[in-house]
């Protein structure tokens, strides 16, 4: 195993049943490496299996076939308990923020949870300082700490999810459409934040998005998926400048242009 590979997946497959006769291959025979410190973007049409693949990589769900190595160690068959130490290093910001934040917890506790679980800081004051710092990073005001998730707008919930995910400084973060409901201005701030984290902390990021202009800004490499399989994976400049696969060309050609 190469030192520069952080996470490596080989031949992952996942099938879901639609009804008694029909099933769908959400992920079929996917192999990929995620390098340390890179931002790998995962793009492709809605329903092609991006979120499912991310869940398989982080072992949130179990694959039917294939294996996942994190820093060279096989985590495919680990029990939930044995996975715990890996959970700190791999965080996911879910696509649907409303259903992934615990509605009964205040924002302070939601963000503090990973810090407490992993005992990052030994005293309360340091935790509070870190929370303040995280809120600033995602452009939220301190007055939101005592509120509950349902008291926030959609975009604010997305940012709370991001703050929680980066709280314990994981090695890998998966952002599933995490900036898609943000206005371009806050979106730019969050994208800059991710880029800064990458530059300074060598954060590795799997960035799922359907917005190809956002991807062009953030990604080092792009992986294009269709129907559960990878159809093209290459350096971002290469994909944008000279796409090889027909589907990639089609995707690039259908980006809505600002008409004016």
């Amino acid at each position: 195993m190469e030192e520069r590979v952080l996470l490596s997946a080989s031949h992952l497959c996942k099938k879901f049943r639609l009804d008694r006769k029909n099933s769908i291959y959400a992920v079929r025979d996917v192999s990929l490496d995620i390098y340390r410190g890179e931002t790998l973007a995962l793009v492709g049409e809605s329903g092609c299996g991006k979120s499912t693949l991310a869940r398989l990589l982080l072992r949130i769900i179990k694959a039917d076939e294939g294996s996942v190595l994190f820093e060279g160690r096989d985590i495919t068959g680990l029990s939930e308990k044995a996975l715990l130490p890996y959970r700190k290093e791999m965080q996911m910001v879910f696509q649907d923020p409303a259903s992934s934040l615990d509605p009964r917890m205040r924002i302070r506790d939601i963000i503090a949870e990973p810090l407490e679980t992993w005992r990052i800081y030994d005293d309360r004051r340091k935790i509070d300082d870190r929370i303040t710092e995280l809120l600033e990073m995602v452009e939220l005001n301190e007055d939101c700490l005592d509120r509950y998730p349902h008291q926030f707008s959609g975009g604010q919930k997305q940012r709370i999810g991001i703050a929680r995910a980066i709280a314990a400084e994981p090695k890998l973060i998966v952002c599933d459409e995490s900036v898609s409901a943000l206005d371009v201005c806050v979106q730019a701030q969050i994208l800059n934040l991710l880029k800064r984290l990458k530059d300074r902390l060598k954060l590795t990021c799997l960035f799922i998005s359907h917005d190809l202009s956002v991807v062009s800004f953030i990604a080092d490499r792009v992986c294009v998926m269709k129907n559960g399989a990878i159809c093209e994976m290459d350096a971002a400049e290469k994909i944008y400048a000279s796409p090889e696969h027909e589907y990639t060309k089609y995707l690039l050609s259908s980006i809505p242009k600002l008409i004016f």
Binding site: E139, N141, D183, V184, A188, L191, N192, S216, F217, I255
Partner: peptide
């Protein structure tokens, strides 16, 4: 708003943002 949109082809190191907080 219009200047913070990332555009394919000419991306700066960091995107332009409106300074300050809401």
């Amino acid at each position: 708003l219009l200047s913070s949109i990332p555009r394919i082809g000419n991306n700066p190191e960091y995107l332009e943002t409106i300074p300050g907080n809401i």
